[in-house]
């Protein structure tokens, strides 16, 4: 990692995130990577609160809060205006949660990237509507408890593969990243910054409150999501060239699941089935990477 990127601090310590919040760690590293010539577009999410109430703000870059489903559209407008003013230097980045990306904001996101609007869209993914009190989203994984998938009605549907949905738009750059791999995250954000057109970064960001984990386990559990192949680190260029950034599998999925209260109800049989699903998705990703190797 470049030292100057590490040194630059564009987020204040007085934010209002929960202890161990993955979304705050993700923002801190993203801003380090992008620098101060950045405008952040922020649809409704935990970060609408984390950024702090008027008249305070936890980031040192211009920030526009926006309605839940408008991340793709507001960024398109900001970019258009900056272009008209001759400002080619400033990076426009949308910062949205999984609800604002996978669900309510998907139309505006799809529209914007189909137009190949020149901005970076970052989804920090904590796998449910956490700000409103842990409701399921289409990013919530198979097996998870949430307040709207309670008891035996735990989610029995797979998580939407958002990166593949974006890749299908043939955008110049799509990547996954994880708060437990900051060098990789910073490299990907800087790479995204150097590319023109629509770029998408999907950051896995643990949520101690919603996942029912101790706050000090936030980073370890995020890392295990990669080490189990549940959340592989990879990049896709121009919708076709796949690169997997981390391959060794160090844990079985049951070891990751056992640490989290949201999966406590799952039986060994459930965990075996989930292991099968993860294996299947991983094989599919390997085939895509091999096909373009």
């Amino acid at each position: 990692m470049e030292l100057d990127a590490l040194d630059q601090e564009l987020m204040y310590s007085g934010h209002t995130g929960c202890p161990g919040c993955g979304a705050t760690i993700a923002m801190r590293f993203l801003l380090k990577a992008l620098g101060d010539k950045t405008v952040v577009v922020m649809p409704a999410s935990c970060w609408s609160v984390i950024a702090g109430p008027y008249p305070q703000c936890a980031v040192k870059v211009p920030l526009i809060h926006s309605a839940f489903e408008t991340g793709g559209a507001v960024a398109s407008g900001v970019r258009a205006a900056l272009d008209l003013k001759g400002d080619k230097e400033t990076t426009v980045v949308t910062w949205a949660g999984d609800g604002g990306t996978f669900d309510i904001g998907f139309q505006a996101l799809s529209g914007a990237v189909e137009r190949n609007e020149d901005f970076i869209y970052v989804c920090y993914d904590n796998e449910a509507y956490m700000n409103t009190g842990i409701q399921r989203s289409s990013s919530t994984p198979y097996g998870a408890w949430t307040t709207t998938t309670p008891g035996t009605d735990w989610k029995k549907l797979r998580k939407k593969n958002i990166v593949e949905a974006l890749v299908a738009h043939r955008i110049p750059y799509a990547a996954t990243a994880n708060i437990a791999f900051p060098e990789d995250l910073v490299r990907k954000a800087q790479k995204a910054k150097s590319i023109k057109g629509s770029r998408f970064i999907h950051i896995f960001a643990s949520c101690p409150t919603g996942w029912r984990i101790p706050s000090e386990m936030s980073i370890k559990i995020a890392r295990m999501a990669v080490q189990t192949n549940i959340f592989p680190l990879y990049e896709v260029e121009d919708g076709v060239r796949y690169t997997i950034n981390y391959k060794p599998r160090e844990y079985l999925v049951r070891e990751y699941f056992k640490l989290q209260g949201r999966f406590r109800h799952l039986t060994d049989k459930d965990l075996d089935e989930i292991q099968e699903m993860v294996n299947e998705d991983w094989e599919l990703l390997l085939r895509k990477a091999d096909a373009h190797a």
């Binding site: 405008v39 577009v41 526009i64 926006s66 309605a67 489903e69 408008t70 559209a73 507001v74 960024a75 398109s76 407008g77 900001v78 970019r79 258009a80 205006a81 900056l82 008209l84 003013k85 505006a108």
Partner: peptide
């Protein structure tokens, strides 16, 4: 939404 972004950017 896009005009909200654009107008907020000064055009």
């Amino acid at each position: 939404a896009s005009l909200i972004g654009a107008q907020s950017s000064g055009v």
